[in-house]
């Protein structure tokens, strides 16, 4: 749910990184945090277990700049990817404006990707959203590893709708900002559409 504050001249949007366990959601956020100008970012919060697996969420507030005199702020969240944290994932999707699905390109994770994509669709539907209608982009992560599935095949399995998709290696930052920009743009375009009263 976009929050438009006329008093502070701000638009606030919520972006959620979704995907199977260990696909690189937190790594995406860490890279964005490291590479963003200190003026444009807040503190990154990670609610993680002792072994650094996401327990509840990671959070990173970002400012993108002004549009028609309104500051645009994006709140980036990750969900915990492990299957048994489903209750927490549902909570984090509340009020979401745009979703990035981070897929793990490795052969052995193909099924986990599909399962997580189904789970995303179901959990969004529970909140009254349709995955086919909200701003959505896909990132094929870990392209640097040797045992990866061809992008064409991943696309066929995960992206039948043909939403914007990107190859990435989040650990080295490849494709991270491209993915974020694509979803942010899509969120703002959606905002424009809804503002037009359609």
């Amino acid at each position: 749910m976009t929050f438009i504050n006329y008093m502070a001249r701000e638009i606030n949007c919520k972006i959620v990184y979704y995907g199977p366990g260990l696909c690189g959601k937190t790594t995406n956020l860490q890279h964005i945090y490291e590479r963003t100008n200190p003026d444009a970012k807040g503190k990154m919060i990670s609610l993680a277990t002792e072994t650094e697996r996401t327990l509840f969420f990671d959070f990173l507030p970002l400012s993108l700049g002004e549009i028609r005199g309104f500051k645009t702020r994006f709140h980036l969240y990750t969900v915990p990817g492990q299957v048994f944290y489903d209750a927490s994932r549902k909570l984090i999707l509340k009020g979401v404006d745009g979703v990035i699905f981070v897929a793990d390109s490795q052969f052995e994770r193909l099924e986990a990707n599909l399962e997580s994509m189904d789970n995303l669709r179901e959990n969004l539907a529970e909140q009254g959203y349709n995955l086919d209608e909200i701003p959505f982009v896909i990132q094929y992560n870990k392209r640097d590893l040797p045992n990866v599935v061809d992008v064409d095949e991943l696309r066929q399995e995960l992206n039948p709708r043909g939403v914007p998709d990107f190859e990435a290696n989040a650990r080295d930052g490849v494709g991270v900002f491209e993915t974020l920009k694509a979803v942010s743009k899509s969120v703002l375009t959606e905002l424009k559409k809804s503002g037009a009263g359609t």
Binding site: M1, T2, F3, N5, Y6, A8, Y129, E133, I134, L191
Partner: peptide, 9 residues
């Protein structure tokens, strides 16, 4: 689907 929250002065 996604109602906005708006804050006025």
């Amino acid at each position: 689907v996604n109602p906005q929250m708006v804050m006025y002065e």
